[in-house]
Structures are given as C-alpha cells and as structure tokens.
Design a binder for these strands. Sequence first.
RNA 1: GCCGAAGUGGCGGAAUGGUAGACGCGAUGGUCUCAAAAACCAUUGGGGGCGACCCCAUCCCGGUUCGAGUCCGGGCUUCGGCACCA
Length: 812
Amino acid sequence: MRYNPQEIDKKWQARWASDHLYKVDDDNGRSKWYEMTMYPYPSGNLHIGHWYAMAPSDAHARFKRMQGYNVLHPMGFDSFGLPAENAAIRQKVHPHDWTIQNIANMKRQLRSMGTIYDWTRVLSTMDAEYYRWNQWIFLQFFKNGLAYRENAPVNWCPNDQTVLANEQVVDGKCERCDAQVERTNLEQWFFRITKFADKLLDFSKLIDWPTRIKTLQENWIGRSEGVDISFDISHLGVEETELHTFTTRIDTIHGVTFMALAPEHPLIEKIVTPDKKLAINDYIQLARQQSEIERLATDREKTGEFTGCYAINQLNGDKIPVFAADYVLLSYGTGAVMGVPAHDQRDFEFATKKNLPIKVVISPENWNGEDLPEAYLGSGLLINSGIFDGISSDEGIRLIAEHVENASFGNRTISYRLRDWLISRQRYWGTPIPIIYCSTCGTVPVPEEDLPVELPRDADFQPKGKSPLASNTKFLNTICPNCGAKAERETDTMDTFVDSSWYQLRYVSPNYDKGPFDKQLLKLWGPVDQYTGGAEHAVMHLLYTRFFTKALNELGLLNFEEPFLRLFNQGTIIADHHKMSKSRGNVIAPDPFVESLGADVVRIYLMFLGPWEQGGDWSDSGIKGMSRWVNRVWDIAHIDTGEFDKVDEATTQDLTRDTHKTIRKVITDLDRFHFNTAIAAMMEFTNKLGTIALKKNVVPAVWQKAVETLLVLLAPIAPHISEELWERLGNSYSIHSQLLPQWDEALAADKMITMIVQVNGKVRDKISVQVGISEDEAKEAALNSPNAQGFVGDKDIRQLIYVPGRLVNIVV
RNA sequence: GCCGAAGUGGCGGAAUGGUAGACGCGAUGGUCUCAAAAACCAUUGGGGGCGACCCCAUCCCGGUUCGAGUCCGGGCUUCGGCACCA
C-alpha cells in the first residue's frame, strides 16, 4: 500500500470537519494562545504567497495547540475594497456577487491546506453585521473628537476617480492602478491618529516585535522637537499679522535670509504684490500638477517665485523676502520654512539658485570668512547673532528658544511627520460613513439604534468623480434624526484599513450583536499573543490598528493597549531566483501541486525552502525531495518489527538518544518559527530509522516509540499523513489532540564525543573521548594523538587551550 | 542620500567565537528493468598525493583572538523600506 495523498487528504479533512475537531471552546481550562495571521483580500484565488503566509502560521498554531494551549487561530476575509469595484466596472458583476464567489473558492482552497481554522468564527468585513460596528466605532470617535471633517489637499487618482492617502501613493502613482496622482481639495473625514503620536512611539508593552518594524514606525511618526517661531507681517495689511514657521534649528535664526512657503499656502494669494501675481499664479499651477512625490525628488533643481513681500525677523529686525517654493510641503509643520542657507543644504541650494545672501551664524572650525562650498550642518560657536555671539550652537538652541518664548515670538513645540488618517473614500464598495447633513442642525451622527447604515445593493458605481452613493437618491435622501426635516446622508465610504484595525477583536465573538465584541470573552482571549504577516504592513495597517487599540482603550472599551504582543514577519517567496510576476510567467499556482503531491508535501516544502523570516526560493524540482521524504516516512511506519532479529543494545541506546535529541531540536526550532531546520532534523532522524530498518538491529518497543515520536513531531507540519499513520499504528484518534513529547536531557546526552585536536588553531585530528573526560585527560589524549604530534614535533608548547566537550588547541 | 537585512558548493540553504557546507535539490556511477521512469545504494567545494594525509576555500581589505562564516573597522554588491521633514 503506497501513500495516496489525494485519498488521505480528503478522508481526514472530512473527518475533522464532521467531528468539529478544530472548534474552539472559549474556556477549556487550558491557557489561551491567540495566534493570528493577516487575513487575505478575497481576490479569487489563493496563490503561493498566501500559502507561504498561512501554512507556516497554521503549523505554528498547531504546534502551540499540541503544547497544551487552548489555541484560537481564526481566519477571515478583507472583503471590501477597490478590486471588487474594478471587477464590477469591467465585468459588469456586482461587487457583492464577485466577492462572495471568491470567498467560496478561497475557503475551499484553505480547507485543502488542512488548516485548523474554526469556520464557525470566520468573518467577512462586507457583512452588515461586521461593518455596522465600523460605524459604531466611528460614532464613538466622532463623539470624542477623534473623527472630524476638513477640507484638505489630497491625492487624487484620475483613473480610480478617488482620493488616496499619502501612504497609498507609490512613486507618485496610485498604489493600486499605477495612474499618475494629482492633487486637489475635498471635504474629507479624518481620524485623529496624531493625538496618539507619543503613545504610538511607546513600544514598552510589546513582548516581541522586530526592531526593524519599530524603527519604521518611529521614522513614520517622525517626532521632532523645535520652536514654532513667528515672523512679523503686520505691515502687509492682511488679516494675519504673523507668519509662523517650525524649526528644529532655532540657533540659526539670525542666519535667515529668506522665507519659503508651500505653493498651496493660503497666505500666498493674500500677500502677493500685484506685479508678481501672474508669475506666482503660474508657479502655483505648475506645482499643483506635480505629485508630492515628484516634488520631493532629491535630484531636482530648486524652484520658487518671489511674492514681492517681506517678513520681519523679530530677533534682529532683518527684512526677509518671502518666496513660494515647491520643496516646502504644506502638510508638514506650518507649511513654511525659514531659509537658513548657510546651515541647511536645501536652503543653500535654493539661495544659490536665487542669488540670495548666505549668512554664516555658526562658525565652522578653522573658518576664516571665505564662502562656504555647501551648508555647514555641524555645531560650533555662534557669530553674527547679536547678544548670542560666542556661545555654542548647542547651547544656543536652548537659550534662543527661551529668549523667543519670553519675547512672545514663539513657542517650543513638537512636530510630527505623521498626519491624521484620511478615511473618506469616494467609492461604493465600503462601509458607509454614518453621518447625516441637515440644513438646520448641521452635521448629525446617525443614532446608534439606526445602525447599520446599509450599503444599498443598487448603485451606479461607475466612477464620476464623486461617490457612487451620491447618485442613489433612495440612499441619499433621509430625515434629520434631530429635527425631522429633510436631510442628506454622507455618501463617502470608509478606507478598508478601518476594517482591519479591529478585526482581531471581532474573531473572539464574531456573531455578537450587542456591541463590536463581547467584553467578557475579550478579557479571556485578548490581546493577540502572536501575529504573523508580511512586513509591507509595517506602517499602515500595524500603526492604524495600534491606534484603534489605544483609542478604544482610552474610551474605556478595552482593557489593553496593544493589539499584538508578538509580531513575526515572514519574508517573501520568490521562484527560481526571481520575484514572481505575471509578466515573467513564473507565478506558482499551488492547486496543481496539492492535487498531485498532496497538501502535506506543499506545506512541508514551503517551510523547508529557507528561513521563514527571510523568504524562500521555490523550485519545481525541489519539492520532489519532500515527496520522497514523506514516502520514506510512510514506508518506515509500515515496517514489521517482527523481523527485527539482530537486536543490538548499543544501537538501541543510540536510537533512544537520537529520539530525544530530535524532540529537543524540533520543539525548540518550531517555537521560534525555524521550520526549515526542524524539518531537516526530522529528515535526519528518518534517515537513521531507514538504516536501522535495513539492519533490523533495535528493540521493537524502542523502534515503535521512535516512529510514533516522529509522527507526533510531524503532525503540526503535515497534518494529514501523520494522522493516517497514527491510526495505522493502532493509536487512538486524533494525533492532533496529543501533547508533544518531552525530551529528557539525560537521555539526549551523548556518551562519547568527537574531540577536535588543533595545533595553532588548525584541525589536525579528531579523537573519540568519553563525555565526562577531565581536562587533564583530554589534554593528554590530545598530546598523544600521533597526527597532532607530527605538527608539534620538538617545538615548545606555549599554551594548551581546552574547551570542554569540544577541543584542545596546542599552541607551539 | 538615509535606515534595515543579506552575501557560504552547480542551486536552495546549515553552522551557542571552536570539525565550514547539516538537510534537500541537481549531477555522476551502480542495483533493479527488455528499456525507461520510480525507488534504492555510493560519490559529489577546488587542487595535490598510490596512500595515511596535505594545501586552498564562507564578497574584498585590514584588525581583535590560541582559534573568525560568526566579533570590530573600512569598502563592494544584492534585496527591502523610507526619502528635500524645516
């Protein structure tokens, strides 16, 4: 009887389903372990990248289960989003129907992997019973000032006819459709994530996150301490009497020779002098056509236009020309820069281009007044700085900040690169924002009891520059919940990152209808102990969900502050040394391999390819090795020990030792996601069993134990074949309800070891010695080694290095 | 430009500062077969020697150490992320 994966996979998948083997009890007396992998977008097919994320995480969750934990390892679908809407536009399929079909297919594929997902807990974000709680959370945020509406410049994708967050613009192009992004203004809903900037910088409550991800988030938040300093423009006769700018280098304030405003800065239109108006308007038009990313390109020449106006530096009375310059961003700081060409490289380039004076206020070492070839960014003694001359620039930062605060020219402040989270989408396939606009009462939140605001099935979702919901009058027209007058609904929907910002809370009680989650059950399960997923979500998803957790915590809805205590990022899988892509034609489809070789072989290969953390290189020939191994395990499990007639005590002891060594290696490796080396250890063990099977020289009971151990260790990785062989060996169902064996250090310990004999650090001999050998005995044995003696000769022995259990190094 | 990760046989990859190349793929030879496939056995970093063995070898150049793939300094290359952040 040969191993027949097609039959065995189906047999056990059906049995596990009908027995509800993976149904999770909320409280079964064991310690909880909540392990999640990032849920997929239901694009229609699980590709090998999905498998690469899910098979190892499933194996790890199974491993924890067999360690005795009560494991929750759920699965769901990120089912709102643009691809469904694009498919609807292209293929005239309703996004709902398209997504439902895809989910059905992907569920089938996920089952074919032999996963432990509890399908009674599956969630899908497009369900009204899910997104109503998006709306509910939105209302809580709104009531607590964490959601607000503002007219703001946004990235506009002309192709998708929609707004993109800065984070979703890649290389000046739309992340999803690659169209060149433009800039425009719209009324948008925001979540006030910036309020949590400092809390998000605090990683102290995390148990284990990659430093890399923490650094990325730190840089993304981009906290910098500085001074908000104002320049006097009261003489210009406009409403504003001061021009505010943020600087981290207040010590260079006396070196300001120009001001640069972002072209979109509202002040520009007001202050521009009549003779400059034409040129400025042209410049603003030009800047508007450029995406933010284009404007930020470092190799670009600095451009700008003089507004004809001057601002007054209140520290020294200098008259400073004000420019519009597109290297200044409206979205950072105050949208205005004080230009200090001598001590900032960008300002230096701008000043050079515009022939502006370069005034040195920090003296570089050994500087004797010549022109600077580039900006001097270092510290030094202040010069040309009035009463601050002669003090160090580092001290200047403190003293001048104090001075401007006392003089009411400015305030010490903290600026962040992080911007508030724009959640409005002018799209159909998403969560409607639960807001009503009334001509009398203004912006009115939908009462909680009226939730969900359901997404209507019929809508014209062809993009027309505004939300498809705006053309659905049945949806649009409503009654003001406040005064009963005719009113209109908000027609924007929410960013799908809202869905994924709290889904981990919903899995705990996916059908709960009195709130987003059952608080009691969440006390039991939350927070997530282990999260796994790709590093591409380092800043967006992971930052947003941390923000949600902290905000819900602050609103008293959660008793913890971090969503994911441990995070593991797997690498990406490539094929034949290249990134998989349709154009290259090297995309691996998992289904054919599952059909021909079985799910277990595909699972094993994905985990064997390389370290999970670093990704792996798939090759069609490599997977054959896994098939061979699994077949060898099959054969070994079928060996009849009745024929073992040359029993040898020493070999039997070796087998016991190898069994315990293998347990130790596999368990410690699986715990740390080192699947590849755990599998290698099991292969080695299999090879040893194969040799023994030929020699028939061990005690049958020890053999039996060794084979069963191998199967139990294999179970998390290859659930089907291990279950089948477990049954064939006469054990009771199910192997997946077994506990992993414990290893015994004493039994795993070697008796004889190979000791290395080195002469001057070079290996000259390998001798077999007792484990407990004393230092003196070891040294003597080393000196007596004939091989080593040949290299020592009659030279003086200067030193003998002894490393217990390892080597002796003879230094001559 | 900045930040991060990585560079080891023909290939994917193993190696608490202590036997470099575990495990697997591929290749070569053999067994089985009419033949092939599959499977199994053996060999497989390069060079030298009849041989026990010897020399060289972990991107490059230095350093620390009895001993470096591993630690330190400098450089090169690849991949990933971020990027005029005032």
